[in-house]
Design a protein around this nucleic acid. Structure first.
Lengths: 335, 335
DNA sequence: GTGAAAGCGCTAACAA
DNA sequence: TTGTTAGCGCTTTCAC
């Protein structure tokens, strides 16, 4: 295995100059750099990560802490972050924390300590203790989909977005509007469900509609939970004429339940989701689109900023948009 | 920042003993180990990754090369692998190669060189040159969803699984069976579409059905492509009575097209997919289930094996299973 | 712009 | 079982 000494010798420079040339530092003449690069190519040399890291004190790696790698939302955020970080020459190291024990292990041991230059946290509302553990790392941290005192974040305005979804339904004339999605307590302490529920209640208030607890059905953001929730709503004496599901995946399940019950959408029931999931267009689901890939990109960019210079914590709120598709329509009384 | 010397001093041992104790090596008395661990805890010391890596020659990291982090299949495989590797104390570093340029860059520069102890490759059929580049790393490599000479792999039997899907349709009495999914050439040189098509043709042959090119519609494994493909099949003078989609996502799109065309499923058209996607049950889609998370776990285990001792390349084939749901039914003539 | 030399902080071989 | 010591292979001052 060739070392930088071999490269230096072959290029007839010192190891210091070889190092500078290979890292693209400006203080090297073009001619010297060319010689070094040619030597490195001939010897098939690459800088070993660990030696470089030990000497420089940087790891050129970013850790990403994420509850569910396999879900569409999280995978898409990861992809966005990875794209930007790769471009900047940083590696992404994945730390999955799918359940409470793995989460406790992560924040207990902090395997990112002395391992990464920065940390990205996806959608985990941090306990004060967890936030402290992250701050104690003394490296840049960015949270996606949540916030914490003194830590940068990238997110959407969940209450406002949910209000837009439900307002779309009230504007169509609906007065009995169901809600699918909150569980008590939510897994991982997710705050999103609570925020979206506030938006739902606000839209009802705007329209002068009295909220009705009986119209709220719990669900864990999966299609099967959405289906079960819809079934419960349908089983009531006075079911809603429209439903706001807090995620597209739950909305898909709700559509399934309606199909099973032979209820036409939107004539018999309007459904609006949240996310603009990959499959939402295919299922003709009205929804609130949020920029998911872009949240990952933006978070990575904030991280890069903070790695370059001491930057104050930022809180970036990305826009959402109502997407009208075929699953929402006028209330029956207006037909 | 405390060093191992501080820990050693506080525990009244040499740095070598401190190192051994902290790494859990057996050649340390329980009492010494306890003293060292207490000292480390008091000083809040953790072994810095880079120094340890430089001295030991190991990085305790595994690289994973993956075309699409955000798609359900890939995300789920990553999650499976990450779970097993984390358990073994190895970090997973993600290398996304969504398009040809990024793929060329990866195999050209080989950023995993001198960076990881092993590599996982997801669903990329390797060119001979790419396979050589991986072998030249001289680290264990495992491929998921493909194969290469001299490299371990974990996969399913695609032709057999596809045959099972189509046989399910012929057994229901269907004779005109459409195929959705192959494109020519497939993106990334994916071999899966070709293999599944072979299975499709074999099932037709078994049933004595003459294949008909007009019944094959291209699609890139997305729902919108599946929808467009189904529309093309429906536009024919003599459309099929059943369709095999090479992925559930395409099947979802096909179902959408049928819904739009007011064709009842399965009375007017049977649809079977492939994967048993998270949403397949919610959409009542018959499909071929493949163990996705388990493929990631199994690949990680092969990697761990090969890291421990020189093991010959293995080729692990995991089972698939026909899942009968509501989207497939008897051919109309048999009703 | 380039070179000499001193670390970065551990692990592993060897000795005891 | 424990200690001593020599690296692991760069990067970074500090001179020139």
């Amino acid at each position: 295995m060739p070392s930088i000494r071999d490269v230096a010798r072959q290029a007839q420079v010192s190891t210091a100059t070889a190092s500078r040339a290979l890292r693209g530092l400006p203080s090297v003449t073009a001619e010297t750099r060319a010689r070094v690069e040619r030597a490195a190519a001939e010897l098939d040399y690459v800088i070993p990560f660990n030696a470089s890291s030990l000497a420089s004190g940087r790891t050129n790696s970013v850790g990403i802490v994420v509850p569910f790698v396999s879900r569409w939302f999280f995978g898409t955020v990861i992809a966005g972050a990875e794209t930007v970080l790769r471009e900047a020459g940083l590696d992404l190291v994945v730390y999955g924390v799918p359940d409470a024990p793995s989460r406790a292990r992560f924040f207990g041991r902090m395997p990112v300590r002395r391992r990464v230059d920065a940390v990205l946290v996806l959608c985990l509302p941090l306990t004060p203790w967890e936030a402290d553990a992250l701050r104690a790392l003394r490296v840049p941290v960015v949270i996606v989909g949540s916030t914490a005192e003194g830590i940068s974040s990238v997110r959407i305005d969940d209450p406002a977005a949910a209000t837009a979804a439900v307002r779309h339904l009230t504007e169509l004339g609906h007065r009995r509007i169901g809600l699918i999605g909150e569980t008590d307590p939510p897994p991982h302490g997710f705050t999103t469900p609570g925020l979206r529920r506030h938006g739902y209640l606000r839209a009802l208030a705007e329209a002068g509609i009295e909220p009705d607890r009986a119209l709220e059905a719990a669900g864990c953001f999966t299609a099967s939970d959405g289906e079960a929730a819809m079934q419960r709503l349908l089983a009531q004496k006075n079911p809603p004429s429209a439903v706001f599901a807090m995620s597209d995946e739950m909305a898909f399940g709700a559509l399934r339940a309606l199909h099973r019950a032979r209820i036409d959408v939107p004539a018999g029931m309007s459904v609006i989701g949240f996310d603009d999931h990959e499959l939402a267009a295919a299922l003709d689901l009205s929804t609130i689109a949020q920029p998911v890939f872009a949240q990952g990109e933006q978070a990575a960019r904030l991280l890069l900023d903070q790695l370059q210079r001491e930057a104050p914590p930022a809180d970036v709120v990305l826009p959402t948009e109502l997407i009208r598709r075929g699953s929402t329509g006028p209330a029956a009384s207006l037909n």
